Simulated scan of single mutants.
Amino acid sequence: MARTLQYKFKGVLKQQPFSYDKYHDAFEAAAAAEGIDLTAFRKMEQQVAMTAKGKGALKDYRRNAFAALGFTEVVLLKDEAQS
């Protein structure tokens, strides 16, 4: 099933094709589209994952870190099949 990534970057709504073969998640794809290096983000994400007691902390970290970079409303949309 084809998917489309939709996100706002610094207030501008953008869309692009998304594939799990190419990207780990929607946030990674959005950062790649905007040319943002995620090396420091990934290191901190690993530390949060090792110390957090639940997945909620990791999701909150990811959402807050990307909001600081200028990303909001990062979602994957399912493309409807053409019949």
Results as ranks from 00 to 15, higher is better:
Lys53Gly: 09
Tyr61Pro: 03
Thr39Phe: 10
Asp60Val: 08
Phe71Asp: 04
Lys59Gln: 11
Phe18Gln: 08
Ile36Tyr: 02
Lys78Met: 13
Tyr20Ser: 12
Asp37Ile: 07
Tyr23Phe: 15
Thr51Cys: 02
Leu69Val: 00
Glu73Trp: 06
Thr72Lys: 10
Tyr7Ile: 03
Glu80Arg: 14
Tyr61Gln: 00
Lys14Ile: 05
Lys14Ser: 08
Tyr20Ala: 09
Leu5Trp: 00
Gln47Leu: 07
Val74Asp: 02
Phe66Met: 12
Tyr61Leu: 01
Gln6Ile: 13
Leu77Ile: 13
Arg63Glu: 12
Lys78Phe: 12
Asp60Glu: 15
Gly54Ile: 00
Tyr61Met: 01
Lys59Ala: 10
Ala33Glu: 05
Thr72Ser: 11
Lys55Gln: 13
Ala67Phe: 07
Phe41Gln: 03
Gly35Arg: 05
Glu28Ser: 10
Gln15Arg: 13
Lys55Val: 12
Leu58His: 01
Gln15Ile: 09
Tyr20Cys: 03
Ala29Asn: 01
Ala33Trp: 05
Arg63Trp: 07
Leu77His: 08
Val75Ser: 08
Gln46Pro: 01
Ala57Pro: 07
Met50Ile: 10
Phe71His: 05
Ala40Cys: 03
Asn64Arg: 14
Gly11Cys: 00
Thr4Gly: 06
Ala33Arg: 07
Val74Phe: 04
Phe27Gln: 06
Met1Cys: 11
Pro17Glu: 14
Tyr7Cys: 00
Thr51Pro: 01
Arg42Val: 13
Ala81Trp: 10
Ile36Trp: 00
Phe27Trp: 10
Arg63Lys: 14
Glu45Trp: 05
Ala65Asp: 00
Arg42Asp: 15
Leu58Trp: 03
Ala2Asp: 14
Leu69Glu: 06
Lys43Arg: 15
Arg62Phe: 02
Gln16Leu: 15
Asp79Ser: 08
Asp37Cys: 09
Gln15Pro: 08
Asp37Ala: 12
Gln16Glu: 15
Lys10Glu: 09
Phe41His: 07
Val12Ala: 13
Met50Phe: 09
Lys8Thr: 15
Ser83Thr: 10
Gly35Ser: 03
Leu5Glu: 03
Lys53Val: 03
Gln6Phe: 11
Met44His: 14
His24Lys: 15
Gly35Val: 06
Lys10Val: 01
Thr51Asn: 02
Tyr61Lys: 00
Glu45Leu: 11
Asp37Tyr: 05
Lys53Trp: 01
Arg42Ile: 11
Lys14Tyr: 04
Gly70Tyr: 02
Phe9Ser: 05
Ala30Thr: 05
Asp37Gly: 08
Ala2Cys: 11
Arg42Phe: 13
Met1Gly: 15
Tyr61Thr: 04
Tyr7Glu: 06
Lys53Tyr: 05
Lys78Thr: 15
Lys14Cys: 07
Ala65Cys: 02
Ala33Pro: 01
Phe66Trp: 11
Gly70Phe: 03
Thr51Arg: 00
Tyr20Asp: 09
His24Leu: 15
Val12Gly: 09
Lys53Arg: 14
Arg63Ser: 11
Phe18Glu: 07
Gln15Gly: 09
Thr4Trp: 06
Asn64Cys: 08
Phe71Arg: 06
Asp25Glu: 02
Ala26Pro: 06
